[in-house]
Simulated assay, not measured.
Amino acid sequence: MSTLNLASAPEDAAALEGAEAHHARLAGELAGRVKMLLTAVDRDPTAVERIHAGLVAFCDRSLLPHAAAEEAALYPAAHAMFEARLLIESLIGEHRCLTTLVDTLRTAPGPADAAADARALQVLFEEHVAKENGLVLPLLAMTPEVSLAALLADMHHRIANGTGGSGVPQDQSNEKGHDMRGQRTDEPGGCGGVCGCGGAEEAAEPELDVREVPHALRHAAVFGALDAVPAGTAVVLIAPHDPLPLLAQIEQRNPGVFSVEYLERGPQAWRLRLSHR
């Protein structure tokens, strides 16, 4: 069944597709950041603190405000429907679990604890958005009395204005090295320990194997991973094919920031070193 057939109006069909794409970007960036943290715990302990802080900052500025805005703008319309009431109440409960996991991740006493908390957060969020994509959003889109497009517009207005679900402006600060829009900025000092400026020598480069990431999340996962790579360091990308379209998107997103070196060119895998200049 097509998206248009699921929706009661063309604008709601477009809104449904846009919401699913937004969920994919959030889940993908979370997956990329979690993968970087897990890799750093195993291969580059000197980078764990920085990647951990970046992951928490991403949750604070993106995941949790998204959840709060959903509860304020999207969930009430679905909760008013008898057939969705219990589902929405369970999803609100999952939001509380997500908040608790982020707080637990924030105060993790050690790298292994942070890795476990991050992985649990990723699994819960991916299952959560799967329910929203498969049940809540289609239900709202196919209900003639409800404008999904209007609900999502209200939701994103709340996120953009930093009010979430409370009407009180939230802290929109970002982790060091990014501006409010998530764009890279110059990061002063340090190289992550790979250029001989005083950091640990011969730190292992983290790897992101996108073959382990669901196809719909792959590009967003790479963007999330790259956002955790400071200047002077690199990440090794492993892909099932030559990722030329992805490389073009990386250059469009961050012009001149990353250099690309092919380490392996198939046939089973393509390995590329993406270095943050």
Rank of each mutant, 00 (worst) to 15 (best):
37 L>S: 08
90 S>Y: 08
95 H>D: 07
59 C>I: 02
42 D>Q: 15
61 R>I: 04
98 L>M: 11
132 E>D: 09
52 H>G: 05
111 P>S: 08
66 H>C: 09
137 L>W: 06
49 E>C: 08
110 G>R: 14
41 V>M: 13
39 T>S: 15
26 L>Y: 02
100 T>R: 15
29 E>W: 06
67 A>S: 10
126 E>Y: 04
61 R>S: 13
63 L>D: 10
31 A>L: 10
56 V>M: 03
61 R>L: 04
97 C>Q: 15
114 A>F: 02
63 L>C: 00
84 A>G: 00
101 L>E: 05
102 V>G: 04
29 E>H: 05
30 L>K: 01
134 G>N: 07
22 H>W: 08
136 V>D: 00
74 L>W: 01
106 R>G: 02
45 P>A: 01
136 V>I: 10
106 R>A: 08
40 A>T: 12
69 A>L: 10
87 L>W: 08
22 H>R: 06
70 E>W: 01
126 E>M: 06
65 P>T: 04
55 L>A: 02
63 L>Q: 11
25 R>N: 11
23 H>K: 03
134 G>Y: 01
90 S>V: 11
37 L>N: 05
96 R>M: 08
72 A>V: 03
136 V>G: 01
44 D>L: 12
99 T>H: 03
44 D>I: 05
37 L>K: 00
91 L>K: 09
